[in-house]
């Protein structure tokens, strides 16, 4: 376990650093398809991630959370997409880097894990070799040394019998084991930022608990900053330091997790929390759903997108665009926020 010591030193330094590791400034992603209206998937998003911090991006499908992460990683196809704004990683704007510079950083300084581990792994290469390849490429290790570290990594992410599993192909592993292998690949080079895009959505709840615990432990141990992208507020509640709630491509509320869940201020956040069935509540208690669907949204340019579905909506909500404003340590984009605690 020689890895642990080196991790510990970075993590100590990381915890006390106040400089943001990642600053996303006015990030805007527009999809332009031939013969179709341009579609703004991410509409001016700002947030910071400090070293060692776990930041959540929460929202439903189509809110732009995954597109945001792909834009940060420079993984959006150039054709048909326009990415604007700044993504400052340690002061360097990642959006301005050349493709080859970006490739050098990906896997080494920033890494990402995806929802579907099977399609993110190369099906014809044993997982051990896939971990080793990253080390060879970014750390210049020899195959032999890389395989030793790969074995350690598989062990670290809790894959039983790592010596044998090194030679396994992805299709021979279960979904949970594949996700562990993917985490091993992502963390092999000790990146400073890990982006996890719905890492447990495809997994069963008992396996999800394993993976979330693993992520939590690894992040704590290594001091890696984590951006957790999910639709599941339960996942966020147990994992994230700070939570950004996204709706229709914009951040509508940002707060530390305790205040956010104790007293959600944005009607959307509040509506989400109200509409989730709770374990302790049984039959007969009606849920309070958010009416409509994202298809009912208004354009942000002239209104609050959420207004048609919002129980707090005023006239002004349909006529003006609300701005993201600071309000007692939280950022809020709303003309008529929820006043009282749930």
């Amino acid at each position: 376990m020689s890895q642990t010591t080196s991790y510990a030193s970075t993590s100590d330094a990381a915890r006390h650093g106040d400089e943001p590791l990642l600053q996303v400034r006015d990030l805007k992603v527009t999809f332009k398809r031939q013969g179709e209206e341009p579609f703004v998937a991410v509409d001016g998003i700002d947030f910071d991630v400090r070293p060692g911090q776990t930041v959540g991006l929460v929202g439903e499908s189509g809110c732009g959370k995954s597109v945001t992460s792909l834009a940060i990683m420079g993984l959006l196809p150039k054709r048909g997409n326009r990415v604007e704004g700044e993504v400052l990683f340690n002061g360097t704007d990642l959006l301005k880097l050349s493709d080859s510079d970006m490739r050098d950083r990906r896997g080494q300084e920033l890494a990402m894990i995806f929802q579907d581990p099977l399609s993110s792994l190369n099906p014809v290469v044993p997982v051990g070799l896939q971990v080793a390849e990253v080390l060879e490429r970014h750390k210049g290790m020899s195959r032999k040394a890389a395989m030793v570290v790969a074995r350690e990594m598989l062990d670290k992410v809790g894959i039983p019998d790592p010596d044998r599993r090194l030679k396994d192909y992805p299709h021979q592993m279960s979904g949970g084991m594949r996700q562990r292998a993917l985490i091993a690949i992502a963390l092999a080079c000790e990146p400073r930022l890990l982006i996890a895009d719905e890492p447990t959505t495809a997994l069963d709840v008992t396996i999800q608990a394993q993976i979330l615990t693993l992520l939590k432990d690894l992040v704590r141990e290594t001091g890696t900053a984590l951006i957790m992208i999910t639709h599941d507020l339960g996942v966020v509640a147990g994992l994230c330091d700070e939570v950004n709630v996204l709706y229709a491509g914009r951040i509508v509320e940002r707060a530390e997790r305790h205040p956010l869940f104790e007293q959600p201020r944005h009607p959307y956040t509040n509506g989400l929390l109200e509409s989730i069935p709770k374990l302790e509540v049984g039959r007969g208690e009606r849920l309070n759903p958010i009416p409509g669907s994202v298809a009912d949204n208004l354009p942000w340019t002239s209104a609050c997108a959420f207004a048609p579905r919002c129980l707090n909506a005023l006239e002004v909500c349909r006529e003006q665009t609300p701005q993201l404003e600071m309000d007692f340590g939280r950022a809020l984009r709303c003309f008529n926020p929820v006043e009282v605690a749930r």
């Binding site: 608990a209 509640a237 869940f261 929390l273 374990l279």
Partner: peptide, 25 residues
């Protein structure tokens, strides 16, 4: 199973004792 369900409440999440099942189905 019940202990593994994530609950959207940080207070509960921080205090929960999870029974983590090991291994695969």
């Amino acid at each position: 199973l019940l202990s593994a369900v994530p609950v959207p409440d940080p207070v509960i999440e921080d205090q929960r004792e999870r029974i983590l099942l090991t291994g695969d189905l």
